[in-house]
Amino acid sequence: MTKPDSLQFNSNHQLQHLLSIEGLNQALLTEIMDNAESFASLANQPVKKYPILRGKTIVNLFFENSTRTRTTFELAAKRLSADVINMNIATSATSKGESLLDTIRNLEAMHVDMFVIRHALSGAAHFIAQNVAPGISVINAGDGNHAHPTQALLDMFTIRRHKKDFSSLRVAIIGDILHSRVARSQIQALSILGAKEIRVIAPKTLLPVEVTSLGVTVSHNLEEGLQDIDVVIMLRLQKERMSGALLPSESEYFSNFGLTPEKLAIAKPDAIVMHPGPINRGVEIASEVADGPQSVILQQVSYGIAIRMAIMSLIMQASDRQPS
């Protein structure tokens, strides 16, 4: 059985699938960010299209709703001249009882080169990568609570644009770590890039039981946790989790873990504030902070296109060079 990290590489040790940050090394993350840098600088030009993926077919296969991720993947693919099909499976074949594998087999028969997949269950992208025909690549656009590697990479790219050197950074990730694929991938990416400290801040109900095994420090108090922090990453709190057995109420959460200007002032003065979106104003973050000078939330979105262009072109080069 293939290990998740080895599944991502072809026999030439090139990235064939991007399923998880786990198993990637610092050089590869840096290469992706460097490539994204050149795509980002070209974004302001009048003609934004490059012929790198001309003739390639990419299917955005979304088993879960998404606006930002799907749109930026679509734009990234189109700017690389690929043909893109968006499939919203939440309202499609599987609701008629088709299995995940059958859906993939049918699309394979249409000679697709790459699948970008979002699915509600952890491990779905691995399962598909293990079962697609050779030569087809899979990019994980979020599987359950497991991984969201492209989001983590665009977040690292955003941090690098503002902070340069990871080894001196203390990064706080605040909110629902337990149910967050973004947090898991960010933690792995920050570890690989050598961040000085990764601190997770949340009540115990929103933390995995063995969270420290991921290589983080833990705080249950936002005021304490924000001290000496260079990068503040807020996580979205899903509406259905705001009241019930995980948390008493929105307002109680906001008063304890919501990022207000006063709380942000505890972090380093030049700290940046990030959020993978969509934000819940007044639940995890105050509008003054989300729209304030330290916020880089909208930059994250535009960098998302550059990062996804970099990843798609890297993977497609690998699959083209793969001996048949």
Binding site: E22, S122, G123, G144, N145, H146, A147, H179, S180, R181, R184, P208, V209, E210, V211, S213, L214
Partner: peptide
Amino acid sequence: HEGFQASRFGLQGIP
């Protein structure tokens, strides 16, 4: 099992 693999993979653990 609700342990390090559940934390790592984001799978629902059974304590």
